[in-house]
Amino acid sequence: MKVVVTNDDGPDTPFLRPFVEAVKSLGYDVVVVIPERPRSAAGLARTYHKPLRVRRQGDYYLVNGYPADAVFMALKLIAPDAGLVISGVNVGENIGLEATYGSGTVGAALQAGILGVPAVAMSMEVGGDVGLMRRVVEALLRSLNGALQGVLAVSINIPRDWGGGVYCARKLARGVYNERLYDGVDPRGEKFYWRWGPRREVFEEGTDAYYFYGLRGITVLGIGESGIVSAGKLGRSLGALIGAKIISC
């Protein structure tokens, strides 16, 4: 099967090469189509106001648009026979309502699902174990038989210090960060604003943030036309294959 690999971090992310190698190691034909530069937090943004262009850089196809544009170009032009799209592995987790729907990584997977191609978004907390990431990727690919039916995309998040569990979240945390606006004046005397805030410490039980930050679990989240949907079959298989101590799916 041909697999399209995309991301929202561009060609220079440290996770791209080991991610592609993990997929290739299982015998898949991999086509890498990614934005030419980092496009984090782009969500499902698409380009309509200027021409899209694609160029080769080594083994990669680089697109001058957003992650969703890269997927559209991949499935309509470069690899229309692809049977799966995997987006990531994102540098940093995508947990909670804002991060999930605002993520370019997840947005790319959703674009594939909208076009009728099964898709998974994968993200890993900064400082995460690349070896664990490879195990999760390999387990994911061995778990796909019928596991993506009824979903547009699945979002998987890997914590830095894995607590041994795999959890199928059915609810997104509403607020993950206590954000506010900071203001300042630049060297030219012009005022600017900066949005920032620390992450919360306590999260509602049953949310993706509770499983990820509280229990340090790998989270598996299905996204469908009506919102969050079950991805239990995929989660159970993935958890068994990586030897999870707890599988709550």
Results as ranks from 00 to 15, higher is better:
T6F: 15
G10W: 15
R17F: 01
R17P: 01
E21Q: 15
E21V: 08
Y28A: 15
D29P: 05
V31G: 08
V31P: 02
A45L: 15
Y48M: 05
L52A: 12
V54S: 13
R55A: 09
Q57I: 00
Y60Q: 12
Y60E: 12
V63S: 06
A68M: 11
D69A: 12
A70S: 14
F72I: 05
M73A: 13
K76I: 02
I78P: 11
A82M: 09
I86V: 15
I95M: 15
G102E: 13
S103Q: 12
T105S: 00
V106T: 13
G107I: 05
Q111D: 03
Q111M: 15
A112Y: 02
G113Y: 13
G113L: 12
I114C: 03
I114G: 00
A119R: 10
A119M: 06
M122S: 02
S123E: 06
M124A: 15
E125H: 04
V126K: 13
G127Q: 14
G128A: 15
V130A: 08
R135L: 04
R135F: 04
A139E: 10
N145W: 11
A147W: 10
Q149F: 01
V151D: 08
V154L: 01
I158H: 02
P159N: 10
R160Q: 10
W162T: 04
G165N: 08
V166A: 08
Y167R: 10
A169G: 10
K171C: 07
G175M: 13
G175F: 13
R180N: 05
L181W: 14
D186I: 05
P187D: 04
P187Q: 07
R188W: 10
G189P: 06
F192L: 02
Y193V: 07
W194E: 05
R200A: 03
E201Y: 07
V202T: 10
F203I: 01
E205M: 04
D208T: 09
A209T: 07
Y210K: 00
Y211D: 00
F212T: 02
F212M: 02
Y213E: 03
Y213I: 03
L215K: 14
T219G: 07
V220K: 04
L221K: 06
G222A: 09
I223S: 06
G224H: 09
G224V: 01
V229E: 06
S230P: 04
S230F: 06
G232Y: 03
L234T: 07
R236D: 08
L238H: 04
G239P: 01
A240P: 01
I242V: 11
A244G: 03
S248F: 15
